[in-house]
Nucleic acid binder design. Structure first.
Length: 801
RNA sequence: GCCGAUGUGAUGGAAUUGGCAGACGUGAUGGACUCAAAAUCCAUUCCUGGCAACAGGGUGCGGGUUCAAGUCCCGCCAUCGGCACCA
């Protein structure tokens, strides 16, 4: 027997696959297709992380199995290459980010190839390639044309020390993640995408797709749909203050109103307000607070009562005070609420601080102690025409009353906010817009795309928080595409989420110059059949890309409503100490070293065997040896080969069962138990001391998706040809059944004996047999048999006393 | 606070979805091979009692349903992840 030289073998087959372009997906539209997708990585300077191979190998296994099942498989890879770390590295080392990106990609690609992943490298995409972001920019222009991209004054996070706008993720504990400097809110004009226009469709269409339940739940919560009503309150200023509430049934219990400190009506009332100084001071305080501080302040309710303007409860004509408080957010509903302290915990807290009346309108709790918020059990009281109704009935009745009397109407609301789409950064897609004094914002003509990034002296954001592009006169100054007057370009760039919102479409037709991908290619390949990625992308990437896809569907650019048919997710790989891997903890495992020591096949196998695919799992340097041992045993099995074709009779059942188990487990992401089944089969064959050629061949095919290099090598050595060109092995359900099965006999639920009986034996055969067993008979002596339970092929239970 | 998940040997994890708890792997212990080590192979390895056959207990805790519960129901506890004043 030759030695298992994994390094040599792996290089050999990787070269073979490259030379033969084995995994290239042809645009052969007559074959059944399968589109398997993994999230394309951000090519960081650190190279591949040990966590990357887990989802990649998983989908590689599925892709390899599907090819053997006769599908035309698209399994592509690319680079989500715009982003801050590259830009920061470029700033620090005075290298152009494009060069850094190129180097990183080369490194990543080499590492991915060393894992033997069956990607179609002819379809590689790169979000920083002008031929790619041409279409990212094109999509933005279409969004603008349909009114879904707009500019808005927005509060952003501003690091007072770095003088830079920070993403929310960069603000940790109220300070700048990098320098620890104070972060304040600063108002800037930002491009926004109107994802909220698609909120209901994003919610409804979840019913059409096969996502893990927890993913659907998270998206549903993020979209945050609620049903309620808008209610109009007249004010003593003679105008109308509209609130949104999910509990219109409690309208009789509204004893005051609260509006956000940023509410625009404060300006219209300013002549009448007697305590404007106090109001201004409160507004000032709220504006300077970061989100973090606002949350901190949540413990104690603060606010200011408006003097000079009061509101009138439409249902009973009572005059009630209006407050400003930062517990009411301008960005949700109407920025104003009716406060019902008896039935809302926040209003209750506020009422206690300001000593406001608390009127019970739903009976069932103890409002002397706390707010009663239960909608299911309460009965309406102190509510005029609503008295005696249930909460649900009252909601219906009051909504009808509001509509009839012109005091309000039913209304739905969403927590989902529009997408802040501007970044004051260099390394991103330039936003292809021009500002003209006469025409306003005008998109670049499509034939001028792509709008490339100009070379700049410095990639540093400017002192005032503008993009580095803003310092470049030659870039900024242009003419209006509409009227030809001098105009200025937008200098902000797009967020990293832009390029990743449609990359799966480009894979279908990656070099198309006329459109983002040809209709034929999209009709054939889309939707993605199976998309695996991290849970951390559930609310951002996954939602953003669904939004763009629906928009592209609406303008006729894609053929399907949803981009991904099935979405699964994997758990993170932790360090040996069960902590997240990080340089500072010193628990980082380098995949290159693992490959050098054990080989890529062992690494792949171990990452799949490490535990439940969906859960996090700690890396174990000793456990990986078990996988290496298993491969060694499979390799050494060539010495156990005996002549003769077919599976031997005594192994027939186990062979068929193993094929079934592995085939089914792969589909359900249960790679760990699939591997366990193959290990068990190998143990059986070793115990037997021999393996037939057919048995070995089947084992190699089953193992191939997991350990492609070694199995190809053995397959070739055995004279079977090229493994990945073979058909996946099949099983016969009838042959998965043993002739005889072992059943358990219990007396009063306690195991007494195990019996071998014919498969599917009838009750009237088994029960007498079980009763005759000496141990069972002994246990039943002197007792009356009350009940006998027989579960076919499983167990007998005698209940007696 | 809200939403979601998880809790099984020394350890990573299995358990046909209500039917033998601990598959498969790691580690450990003993043995074989070896001058020796590594590698490999064999055996044992949930706990308690017993030389043993065997008996009893056991899936975070407390109840319940059932002939039968890791699995279902009710109430707690702990850990992890996400959201966080969303009216």
């Amino acid at each position: 027997m030759s030695e298992y030289r994994f390094t040599e073998i792996e290089k050999k087959w990787q070269a073979y696959w490259e030379e033969h372009q084995t995994f290239h997906a042809e645009n052969d539209y007559t074959k059944p297709k399968f589109y398997a997708l993994v999230e394309f990585p951000y090519p960081s300077g650190q190279g591949l992380h040990i966590g990357h191979p887990r989802p990649y190998t998983a989908m590689d296994i599925v892709a390899r199995k599907r090819r053997m099942e006769g599908y035309n498989v698209l399994f592509p890879m690319g680079w989500d290459a715009f982003g801050l770390p590259t830009e920061n590295y470029a700033i620090k080392n005075h290298i152009h980010p494009a060069i850094v990106t190129e180097q990183n990609i080369a490194h990543f690609k080499e590492q991915l190839k060393a894992l033997g992943l069956s990607f179609d490298w002819q379809r590689e995409v790169n979000t920083t390639d002008p031929d790619y972001f041409h279409w990212t920019q094109w999509i933005f222009i279409q969004l603008f044309k349909k009114g879904l991209a707009y500019k808005k004054e927005m509060a952003v996070n501003w690091c007072t020390s770095c003088k830079v706008v920070l993403a929310n993720e960069e603000v940790v504990g109220g300070v700048c993640e990098r320098c620890g400097g104070e972060v304040v809110r600063k108002v800037k004009s930002q491009w926004m995408l109107k994802i909220t226009a698609y909120a209901q469709r994003l919610l409804d269409d979840l019913a059409q797709v096969n996502y893990l339940d927890k993913i659907k739940v998270t998206q549903t919560n993020w979209i945050g749909h609620s049903t309620g009503a808008e209610v109009d309150f007249r004010t003593t200023a003679g105008d109308v203050l509209t609130v949104y509430t999910t509990r219109p049934d409690t309208l009789f219990g509204a004893t005051y109103m609260v509006i956000s400190p940023e509410h625009p009506m404060l300006e219209t009332w300013k002549e009448r307000l007697e305590n404007m100084d106090e109001i201004r001071a409160y507004q000032e305080k709220a504006a300077h607070k970061s989100d973090f501080e606002r949350t901190e302040m949540a413990k104690d309710k603060t606010g200011v009562c408006l003097k000079g303007v009061r509101a009138v409860n439409p249902v009973n004509g009572k005059e009630i005070p209006i407050f400003i408080s930062d517990y009411v957010l301008m960005s949700y509903g109407t920025g104003a609420i009716m406060a019902v302290p008896a039935h809302d915990t926040r209003d209750y807290d506020f009422a206690k601080v300001f000593d406001l009346p608390i009127i019970e309108v739903v009976k069932g709790g103890d409002i002397a102690k706390e707010a009663f918020t239960d909608c299911a059990t309460g009965v309406m009281v102190n509510s005029g025409f609503l008295d005696g109704l249930s909460v649900e009935e009252a909601k219906v009745k009051i909504k009808a009353w509001l509509t009839e009397n012109g005091k309000g109407h039913e209304k739905d609301n969403y927590k989902l906010r529009d997408w802040v789409f501007s970044r004051q950064r260099y390394w991103g897609e330039p936003i292809p817009m021009v500002y003209c004094e006469k025409c306003g914002w005008v998109p670049l003509p499509e034939e001028e795309l792509p709008l490339r990034l100009p070379d700049v002296e410095s990639y540093m954001p400017t002192d005032n928080g503008e993009s580095p592009l803003s310092t470049l006169e030659s870039f900024i100054n242009t003419t209006c595409p509409h009227c030809g007057s001098p105009a200025k370009r937008e200098t902000d760039t797009m967020p990293q989420w832009a390029g990743s919102s449609w990359y799966f479409l480009r894979y279908c037709d990656p070099t198309n110059k006329e459109c983002l991908a040809s209709p034929e290619a999209l009709r054939y390949w889309m939707p993605v059949d199976w998309y695996n990625g991290g849970m951390e992308h559930t609310t951002l990437h996954l939602l953003y890309s669904r939004f763009w896809h629906k928009f592209l569907y609406d303008i006729g650019s894609v053929p399907c409503v949803e981009p991904y048919m099935r979405r699964t997710s994997h758990g993170m790989i932790l360090g040996e100490d069960n902590q997240k891997m990080s340089k500072s903890r010193g628990n980082v495992i380098n995949p290159d070293e693992v490959i050098a020591q054990y080989g890529a096949d062992t690494l792949r196998l171990y990452e799949m065997f490490i535990g439940d695919f969906e859960k996090t799992a700690p890396w174990s340097p000793s456990s990986i040896r078990g996988c290496k041992r298993f491969l060694d045993r499979v390799w050494a099995m060539q010495d156990l080969l005996v002549d003769g074709d077919g599976y031997r009779d005594e192994l027939m059942t186990e062979m068929h069962k193993t094929i079934r188990k592995v085939s089914q487990d792969i589909e359900q992401l249960k790679f760990n138990t699939a591997i366990a089944a193959m290990m068990a089969l190998v143990n059986t064959l070793y115990a037997k001391g021999s393996v037939s050629r057919s048995e070995y061949r089947t084992l190699l095919i089953l193992l191939n998706p997991f350990a492609p290099h070694m199995t190809e090598e053995l397959f070739e050595q055995l004279g079977y040809g090229i493994l990945n060109e073979q058909a996946w092995v099949t099983y016969d359900e009838a042959l998965c059944k043993e002739d005889e099965v072992e059943i358990v006999v219990q007396v009063n639920g306690k195991l007494k004996v195990k019996l071998m009986i014919p498969h599917d034996a009838a009750e009237d055969v088994v029960l007498p047999m079980a009763k005759e067993d000496p141990k069972v008979a002994e246990a039943l002596v002197g007792k009356t048999l009350r009940k006998q339970i027989y579960i076919q092929n499983k167990l007998v239970n005698f209940v007696a006393n």
